[in-house]
Design a protein around this nucleic acid. Structure first.
Length: 723
DNA sequence: AGGTCCGCTATTTTT
DNA sequence: TAGCGGACCT
């Protein structure tokens, strides 16, 4: 078989990684060095050259998106869908294992995955049931406590006994929460991994089964793995599997949520792998890479890596100092406008920032200029309140014992089941040792409710039972549609929320029905005997999904530095380069956290392909208060010869101290009026529909015959008047 | 039971 | 400045 296509486009280091014989491999893959490529080709190489069965391969990624991409690329390279190949996130893979061996780990077949919100609510419930002071034990904090310990593989009994009563109570909350989950068949995200770890550790048959199966384990983004994930890798691998680990210690930016960069060096120590560095970069100009290298060089304890390129030097990195955050946004948007006028696409431009709150000013400015944009992050589809409400009904239809679902929807829409009534149901459930639904049913049957509450509860129970009865043989789409209609959520939102808000919720519910109708059950789920409904519920929890509207329009991309990881854009702005904001105040005290901020800066810079700007403001409103800010220390770490002050400080002071030069004088009036017909080199012929400003800032909006409506700055656009 | 108002807090996010 | 949660009022 001809396998040259697996190697021909690879550089030496990439090829070495793809073809490595024997032993383990650690690929230190710099930004833009083609690591996904290496992983994909490695998988194809193993299958086609070493004739490894796809069944014997396990590939682990960090996000579902990455998993999907890798699956698609492997399929494309092999020219077929590799059946039996496991590609997924740690959570997805563990979920699959637990579904197959639910009985082995003491879980019911119908176990339900708790997403973070479900978990939060349940923990709050537990704290209230324990009659603790919620000020002293905030549910958020307890959630952090529990997840932190689980991520380190610790059960309540593994936590060192403290003489500190506060810590003891925290452990008690953890234990009670866990007991609740056990009784109700609920599994949170960390539990998926921990439970799987325990299964493979304590059950010799299962351990042997998976160790025999997976001869090769490939892991992406290893610098983002936590302690539990590393332990899991070691358990599955045993001493037979060959590990192929890809990571970049310089791009570790999730330490704050338990990721251990040290896993990379630990792996090098524990498994003695062949270490291969991918340092040739195919993304950025030499200028950008040199600057990024210089910044990251200020970190200690690196494994060491220097990105280089065969490409051109490129333009200097623009540094802009704005008076205010507003002016910063104006500058950025003006540069984006230039980009567009020079023929660039909006989607090629990305504005990156440290915290989400910063997006507002950019949005405002882009909106004012009529440039389309898209803000990343924010609420994901399956996390929206209306979706979770509808899914709550669905979950109860699937499994009456799903208490979090019961709590969520028992009085949504309001049907007169108040806190007192629910408390009575909880109490009954606790003493009888049943679920809330069962307790409510028993109380209805024994007439334990007052008349009004009783009717309301009976009505609710009937809605669920009736939905189940009516839809036994229905498709998932029909069931979903019946749920949305019967629960009548749309009316509820319309009645108590702003019309546009309600409308958007309604649209989302319609979208949810469509998602159910078009749901394509994964083959493996079907094989492990899951119903489509169970699959759908699991997927909703496991992949909350982008599902955001206006998918692939040509939009300027606004996102945090964190969400930019893995992406690339020709034109990039790193905004808010200010002490206290970036590096963030909370990260400046400890050196370890500062290093992570610096890595974040490195990640941000290396997103840029052609043009990079770093901008900051000298004053900014934060938490409703305007304060003076100072340039980020990271700016000082850039080599001066690679940067260019876009508007040097001196010029600004000159402008004011000399009483303003000609700059602020109104320029000569232009002769473009509303209705003028004009011609543009690239956009063709159009009509002026709007005129704004004067002098060098004058802008006109033109309705082009073919290119649509655009705002153009006259001093750049080079318009010709035709009439 | 349910709606309104006030006060507190305030990175980063995937599963 | 804005969003969320709890206390308070109807």
């Amino acid at each position: 078989m001809d396998v040259s296509h697996l190697l021909e486009d690879l550089n030496d280091a990439q090829r070495e990684a793809v073809t490595a014989e024997d032993g383990h491999v650690l690929v230190l893959a710099g930004a833009g060095s083609g690591k996904t490529r290496v992983l994909v080709h490695r998988i194809a190489w193993l299958i086609q050259v070493h004739h490894v069965s796809p069944m014997g391969l396990l590939a682990v990624t960090f996000t579902n998106k990455a998993a999907g991409e890798m699956r698609a690329r492997v399929g494309k390279l092999l020219g077929l869908r590799p059946d039996g190949l496991w590609i997924g996130t740690f959570h997805g893979i563990c979920h699959r294992i637990l579904r197959m061996h639910a009985a082995d780990v003491g879980l019911p077949e119908t176990f339900q995955i708790l997403d973070s919100e479900d978990q939060y609510r349940l923990i709050r419930r537990v704290i209230r049931d324990m009659e603790l002071d919620e000020g002293e034990y905030p549910a958020r904090q307890q959630q952090g406590f529990i997840n932190h310990h689980k991520d380190e593989g610790r059960r309540p009994e593994h936590i060192e006994p403290f003489d500190n009563p506060h810590a003891l109570t925290q452990v008690a909350i953890y234990r009670n929460y866990q007991d609740y989950c056990e009784r109700s068949g609920l599994v949170d995200f960390a539990e998926l991994l921990l439970r799987t770890l325990e299964l493979l550790r304590d059950n010799p048959a299962r351990q042997a089964q998976y160790r025999d199966r997976f001869g090769h384990i490939l892991i992406d983004e290893f610098q983002d793995t936590n302690k539990l994930q590393y332990a899991l890798v070691r358990i599955i691998a045993g001493d037979r599997a060959r590990l192929f680990v890809v990571g970049d210690d310089d791009q570790s930016i999730y330490g704050w949520r338990g990721a251990r960069v040290e896993n990379v060096s630990d792996f090098a120590r524990d498994f003695d792998p062949t270490v291969i560095r991918l340092e040739q970069n195919y993304r950025s100009t030499a200028t950008i890479l040199e600057a990024a290298n210089r910044v990251i060089a200020n970190n200690e304890e690196r494994m060491g890596k220097n990105l280089w390129t065969e490409g051109e030097q490129g333009e200097p990195i623009g540094i802009f100092s704005a008076f205010s955050a507003e002016e910063e946004a104006e500058f950025v948007v003006a540069r984006i406008r230039d980009w567009l006028e020079q023929g660039g696409a909006a989607s090629e431009a990305a504005v990156l920032y440290r915290s989400n709150a910063q997006s507002r000013l950019f949005e405002h400015q882009l909106l004012a200029e009529g440039i389309p944009y898209r803000v990343y992050g924010g609420q994901r589809f399956f996390e929206r309140a209306e979706i979770k409400d509808a899914m709550g009904y669905l979950r109860l239809v699937h499994n009456r014992d799903d208490d979090p679902a019961f709590e969520r929807v028992v009085n949504v829409p309001a049907r007169g089941i108040g806190e007192r009534t629910v408390a009575a149901i909880r109490e009954h459930a606790r003493s009888a040792g049943t679920s809330l639904f069962a307790a409510a049913t028993a109380m209805r049957d024994s007439g334990a409710f007052a008349a009004r509450a009783g009717n309301a509860v009976a009505q609710f129970l009937e809605i669920i039972n009736d939905l189940d009865r009516r839809t036994r043989d229905a498709s998932l789409g029909e069931l979903m549609s019946a749920v949305v209609e019967t629960a009548d959520l749309a009316r509820w939102y319309r009645q108590r929320e702003a019309p546009d808000r309600a409308e958007s919720r309604e649209e989302n519910l319609t979208e949810l029905i469509r998602a159910a109708e078009t749901f394509d059950q994964p083959l493996e789920d079907e094989q492990s005997g899951l119903s489509p409904l169970a699959s759908f519920l699991a997927q909703a929890a496991l992949e909350a999904g982008e599902h955001q509207g206006e998918k692939w329009q040509d939009c300027v991309q606004l996102m945090t530095l964190h969400s930019a990881k893995g992406l690339e854009f020709p034109l990039v702005f790193l905004s808010g380069m200010e002490e206290g904001l970036f590096p963030h105040q909370k990260s400046t005290e400890e050196p370890g956290r500062l290093s992570e901020e610096r890595r974040l800066c490195y990640v941000g810079m290396t997103r840029a392909m052609q043009r990079l700007y770093l901008t900051y403001a000298e004053s900014r409103m934060l938490h409703g208060q305007t304060s003076t800010t100072y340039p980020s220390r990271f700016l000082d770490e850039l080599p001066e010869e690679l940067t260019e002050q876009v508007r040097p400080r001196a010029a600004r002071y000159a402008g004011t101290s000399f009483g303003g030069g000609g700059m602020s004088q109104p320029g000569p009036e232009h002769d473009f009026n509303l209705g003028s017909t004009v011609s543009h080199e690239r956009f063709g012929i159009g009509t002026v529909v709007n005129v704004e400003g004067s002098g060098p800032n004058a802008r006109v909006q033109i309705n082009f015959e073919t290119a649509g409506q655009k705002w153009l700055v006259l001093s750049y656009a080079n318009l010709e008047r035709l009439d």
